Structure formats: structure tokens, C-alpha cells
Lab assay of single mutants.
Amino acid sequence: IINNLKLIREKKKISQSELAALLEVSRQTINGIEKNKYNPSLQLALKIAYYLNTPLEDIFQW
């Protein structure tokens, strides 16, 4: 999986903590996703895309 979450999140000036709060997950979860240590569920990936107002395929590429 190619993961552009960190790049997109930083472009939008959103911290890991802010995104985690919006998604109701821990900051460690966001960190793990960004470091490719954790693959989000489809539901979480869709929520990330929604809150970042970015197409899912721009954030994650399988």
C-alpha cells in the first residue's frame, strides 16, 4: 500500500492529534498508519478521506 496520509495531512495543516480527534482514534493509530505499521479498515480509510476532503485513492493506493 502506498500511503500519502502524512503528506496530505501536513499540506492541510492538520496535526496527528487533530485528525485523531476527528476520527475518534488515538494519535498513535494515525502515527501507525503514516508509518505503514498499521493498515486502516475500509471504514477508517473512508473517514480519513472524508475529513481531509481528499479522494481515497489519492491517500491510499493499493
Rank of each mutant, 00 (worst) to 15 (best):
F60V: 02
F60A: 01
I14A: 01
I59D: 01
W62I: 13
K37D: 12
L19W: 02
L22N: 14
A49M: 03
I2W: 10
K11N: 11
L5G: 00
K13W: 05
I14P: 01
A20T: 03
N31R: 14
N53K: 08
L44F: 09
G32S: 14
P55D: 08
Q61T: 11
Y38E: 09
L44G: 00
P55G: 05
K35E: 15
Q28W: 12
N36I: 04
E18G: 07
I14T: 04
I33H: 01
L44P: 01
N3W: 04
P40Q: 02
Y50I: 07
L46C: 14
A49L: 01
P40D: 05
E18W: 05
I1Q: 10
Q28F: 09
R27L: 15
L46I: 11
A49V: 04
S26T: 09
L7V: 15
Q61D: 11
E57W: 06
G32I: 08
A20G: 06
E34W: 02
N4T: 06
S15I: 03
L56I: 14
L22E: 08
E10N: 09
K6M: 08
R9H: 00
N39H: 13
I33W: 10
L7P: 08
Q16S: 06
Y50A: 09
L46F: 08
Y51H: 15
E57G: 10
D58L: 13
D58P: 01
K35W: 05
T54P: 01
I2S: 13
G32Q: 14
K12C: 08
L23V: 15
K47A: 09
K37N: 11
L46H: 12
I33A: 01
A49G: 06
L23E: 00
E24Y: 09
Y50S: 08
S41A: 05
Y50Q: 10
N4L: 05
R9K: 01
L46D: 05
I8Y: 09
L42A: 07
L19C: 03
S15L: 06
K35S: 14
E34G: 03
W62M: 14
I30L: 13
Y50M: 13
I33F: 06
V25I: 10
I14H: 03
A20P: 00
L44I: 06
L22T: 07
A21M: 09
S41H: 06
I33S: 02
D58C: 10
R9N: 02
I1E: 07
A21T: 11
R9M: 06
L19I: 04
N3H: 04
G32Y: 14
L7M: 13
L5A: 02
L22S: 10
P55K: 07
G32P: 01
K13R: 13
I59L: 12
E57Q: 10
Q43D: 14
S26E: 08
K37F: 15
Y51G: 05
K6G: 11
I14E: 02
R27W: 15
T29D: 06
K37E: 15
Q61A: 11
L56N: 03
R27I: 15
Y51C: 10
I30N: 00
N31H: 10
A21C: 11
T54L: 05
A49K: 02
L22A: 15
I48P: 00
R27M: 13
I8M: 07
G32F: 12
L7W: 10
K11R: 12
N3K: 02
N3S: 07
N53H: 11
L23M: 07
K13L: 08
F60D: 01
E34C: 04
E24L: 10
K12W: 05
K35P: 01
I8N: 05
Y38N: 08
I8C: 07
L42S: 07
I59P: 00
L22P: 01
N53M: 08
S26Y: 03
I33Q: 00
G32K: 13
P40F: 06
A45D: 03
L56C: 07
Y51A: 13
I48C: 05
D58K: 09
N53D: 15
N4V: 05
T54C: 08
I30C: 02
L23G: 02
A45C: 11
N53F: 05
I14S: 02
I1S: 11
K6R: 13
I48G: 00
W62G: 09
Y50N: 08
N39I: 13
E10R: 08
Q16R: 09
L19K: 00
D58Y: 08
W62H: 10
I48M: 07
N36Y: 09
I2Y: 11
L44V: 06
R9Y: 03
I30D: 00
K37C: 14
Y38R: 13
K37L: 15
N4K: 09
I30S: 00
S15R: 08
Q28E: 15
N36F: 12
L19M: 05
Q61E: 13
K12F: 04
P55C: 06
N31I: 15
K35F: 06
K12P: 00
K47P: 01
L46Q: 13
S41K: 07
N31M: 14
I2K: 13
N36R: 10
A45R: 09
L23Q: 00
L42F: 11
I30R: 01
A21P: 01
E57K: 11
A21V: 09
S17R: 13
N39M: 15
L42G: 05
P40I: 08
S17H: 10
I1K: 10
D58F: 07
I14V: 11
N4R: 09
I1R: 11
K11V: 08
L44A: 02
